[in-house]
Design a protein around this nucleic acid. Structure first.
Lengths: 193, 193
DNA sequence: CCTCAAGTGGACACGGCGTCCACTTGATAG
DNA sequence: CTATCAAGTGGACGCCGTGTCCACTTGAGG
């Protein structure tokens, strides 16, 4: 007996998510209050809190679908993103960086609305990215993959991406720099001493 | 006519900084309120706000001395930290990373009390570090030093350092990984392409 | 000792958060 | 179609941190 969601509940959930998406895209995400969302959705505070304990959980709900798509591709997808045997760790890290730049470009407002600062590192999604990058680092025989993985993910911090973009840096430049990092950090091990 | 600070004002400023330092070190820095600091310093809210508009400015005041010391060394110091002609960009970046790990280890609570998230990137101190690293990247003929500088600084985010330390990662391991990054990213250009 | 600007501290209003509970709605059984 | 009642709703409420304001105190200079 899976407790089915009642019709009015489903309707309100949709209204909430739609309103939140709009607000996050419009104003500064960290300035959006729970009250704003409730008002914009035409719903009472109690209704809002029943499902989402805070702003971050709403943003996460909106992000989940997109992040899951990337995670699927990492596990099972074709091309260098997925576990294609022919692809080198360098190529796979580059592909991962590209996918993340795409995610940041499309949804940086949600990422900023979700978690900035320490909380982001505790996210399930972050754990997934770290596990993936750690695996690539280990495959490339890099030293201390556990620590290195976090350092390789650090340039993807949403606040840094947002700042770069606001200063007129193009996504392509950011992506190119990340590819450079991927090549330098995981590629050509044999050429060093 | 430099408006000299009155004796009671100076006394209170000292009490405030002392109390704040203690509170930041004890509890979670982001949980310390202005009221807590005022109470701990034995001072009214108005007195506190007269000098420091928010928690971050207090933490910055406490950090200033330490950051200035490093900045001095970068500009005029001896050894690979300073502008010694014989040192390569790789060596200088490694030395910089070491100095920052030392700063993080000693004062991560202040850094967390100061600015987490986007605000940190707008700090004067951050601008200084970026200018320095950008210069080293350019000297090493790395592509797009403007963007790369930020990416090379990203692993130094206080929240990441704190998390690593809390998970039992030693400062030495972090430092070693950063040195690895310095070598990979700025060293041995001629051995590629 | 007097003056007065600098400095002090606490009362206050504001706004966001999260909870609570009396009421409404819709799914199901008879 | 109606009755039942748990799930769902919404807004009022209390709490807490912020930042401001202003009547009072203090100390430096004359």
């Amino acid at each position: 007996m899976p407790p089915v969601e009642r019709a009015d509940a489903a309707r309100n959930r949709a209204k909430i998510l739609e309103a939140a998406e709009r607000l996050f895209a419009t104003r500064d995400p960290s300035g959006v209050t729970m009250d704003d969302i409730a008002k914009a959705a035409g719903v009472g505070r109690g209704t809002l809190y029943r499902r989402y304990p805070d702003r971050a959980s709403i943003a996460r709900a909106l992000l989940d679908a997109h992040e899951h798509r990337i995670q699927e591709q990492l596990l099972r997808g074709e091309g260098p993103l997925g576990p294609e045997p022919a692809a080198t760790p360098t190529e796979r890290l580059s592909a991962f960086y590209s996918a993340m730049v795409d995610l940041l470009e499309r949804h940086s407002h949600l990422l900023l609305g979700a978690e900035t600062g320490p909380a982001r590192l505790a996210t399930g999604a972050y754990g997934f990215w770290r596990a993936h990058v750690r695996m690539l680092a280990a495959a490339a025989q890099a030293p201390d993959p556990d620590v290195l993985a976090d350092h390789l993910l650090a340039p993807l911090a949403p606040e840094l991406y947002r700042r770069h973009r606001d200063q007129g840096v193009s996504p392509e430049r950011i992506e190119a720099t990340l590819h450079h990092i991927a090549h330098r950090m995981l590629g050509g091990t044999e050429k060093f001493g």
